[in-house]
Amino acid sequence: MFESKSGIFLIAGLFFFALSFVVMGLLPWLMYIDEPEQTMEDLVADGVIHEFVDLAERFPDRFAKYFPDGVTRTSFAAALKRGHEIYVAEACWHCHTQQIRPVSGEDLRWGPVSHAREYQNVLQRPVLFGTRRVGPDLIREGARHGNDWHIAHFHTPVSVVPTSVMPRYSWFYDEDDYPNRDGMSIITYVQWLGSWLAEYPYYRGEGPAGVELGATDIITDAMVTP
């Protein structure tokens, strides 16, 4: 059996693999089966984040060009989705993690320890835990810096942090060095990270000046989930 061809084929190849898949993959899968994965609509259901509104205020013409719907949930969802795509494509996740561990003072540095529920959404498919921290963790990045900081930082990181080894992302900007659609999207995405927490400083009730918001498009208390 242990040296016959079919035996090796079956035991090692199929059976042990299946065993490991059940233990290491299926078990965690089944444990969270009752925790529904939030869709894009779920994620924006509670309104848009302040920083997205801020982008619209700062760059009204450009914003209108990139997000013709204006400051709506649809635009917000589109920005998040694109931002996530960029985050994956540029391999930001190879330099930045998105999980706070309960050890080594990580909660002191970044905020509350990550909870499984925070990952049950389409923007964590596949999950962006990350395995290397060249730069800091980003799962609590939202509102840590203002949009202007990010605009300078993505363009030329060393201009704000001289020792930074983060790459320059000039292609997030148009020819006049204003953030283009990709730039606005990635900023929206990083500013969104952590915005689902009660601790998130989301400027409750602060409305954008001069931007017409639909009745449902205000920033609501419901942003405060779990």
Partner: peptide, 11 residues
């Protein structure tokens, strides 16, 4: 997605 996808990615 989510945590379970992390377990499988690790695997």
């Amino acid at each position: 997605g989510g945590v379970a996808s992390g377990a499988i990615a690790g695997l």
